[in-house]
């Protein structure tokens, strides 16, 4: 195999993984919240962007180390989520068709955040880049990869594994699944449904924030990433099956690789069309998603 072919092969592999883990993280965050509270958070893209922008401010404007800034921002999501839960989210827990209410609510939040970003960050720059967490380049055979991307990829992978273990084996995870499946039955068995709701909202947002932070480490970004990410996360959740963490994980990775592989043979635009098209076909034949429980 020639070096050129090997480089293209390895670049496809790393791109697929890199995009895949980020997509998965965000989709897992979205699906944890949707699966438990029935809340389709249209603002997840804005939350994702919020995390990216805050890391940018912390590093570029305040000179913090990117790793420290990243932890700080993910930590900041917790009080933020509690605040939102107490003021706006909680009041809809018992509303019959609350997913529509939540959708409207989060569209409102989207509008507000987009408006604020556009007159602050939007005026400060047209593109945002944070300094690398780790400098340097690693050679995988003939293929050079920036250590920073490698680090972001590994951290995202580790986070996904930890989340998966938490939801599978920990007490909270079991309770969450019980609420996913049947809220009333779970309540009868003594599960604190509202506590689980709150916990899911906080955890889901923290995961979305982590996705935003890692994305900002690996890529330059601008304000348009919010909508792209929101739509992608929704698409992954629908194909994987809403509420299915495994589904979000697997389909997220598949999305990443689709984008990487299709763009070798066709144009990147065709790649975008292809996975959205695949989504429509899957929906027609298995509307509840591939990994529905």
């Amino acid at each position: 195999m020639s070096d050129a072919t090997l480089i293209i092969l390895l670049s496809t592999l790393t791109t697929g993984l890199m995009l895949g883990v980020i997509f998965s993280l965000v989709a897992v965050g979205v699906t944890i919240i949707y699966g438990s509270i029935w809340m389709p958070n249209a603002a997840n893209g804005q939350f994702f962007l919020l995390a990216s922008l805050f890391v940018w401010s912390a590093t570029v404007s305040f000179g913090l180390h990117p790793a420290f800034a990243a932890l700080l921002v993910i930590g900041a999501s917790v009080p933020l989520s509690y605040l939102l839960e107490a003021t706006l989210v909680r009041r809809f827990y018992d509303v019959p068709n609350r997913n529509i209410s939540y959708f409207v609510l989060t569209l409102g939040i989207t509008q507000i955040l987009a408006g604020i970003f556009s007159i602050t960050y939007g005026v400060w720059s047209d593109q945002f880049q944070i300094p690398p967490i780790v400098a340097g380049v690693t050679m995988i055979g003939p293929f050079p990869i920036a250590n920073n991307r490698l680090a972001a990829m590994l951290i995202a992978g580790a986070l996904l594994a930890a989340l998966f273990a938490l939801l599978r084996y920990h007490k909270y995870g079991r309770a969450l699944r019980a609420v996913f499946q049947n809220r009333d039955a779970a309540a009868l068995r003594g599960v604190d449904v509202r506590g689980i709701y709150r916990m899911s909202f906080v955890l889901g947002n923290a995961v979305v924030f982590a996705g935003g932070v890692l994305f900002a480490c690996a890529y330059s970004f601008d304000l348009t990433v919010a909508w792209t990410m929101a739509i992608t996360a929704f698409a992954i959740m629908i194909i994987g099956g809403p509420g299915s963490v495994l589904g979000a994980l697997v389909i997220g990775i598949v999305f990443g690789f689709t984008q990487a592989i299709v763009s070798i043979f066709a144009s990147p635009t065709v790649a975008a069309f292809s996975y959205l098209g695949a989504m429509l076909v899957i929906l027609l034949f298995k509307p509840s998603g591939l990994f529905a429980r």
Binding site: A4, T12, T15, T224, V225, W227, S263, S267, P268
Partner: peptide, 13 residues
């Protein structure tokens, strides 16, 4: 690249 692209590693290769 379509609008909304994030990654260009493969194309760079």
């Amino acid at each position: 690249f379509p609008q909304g692209s994030n990654d260009a590693t493969v194309q760079a290769a």
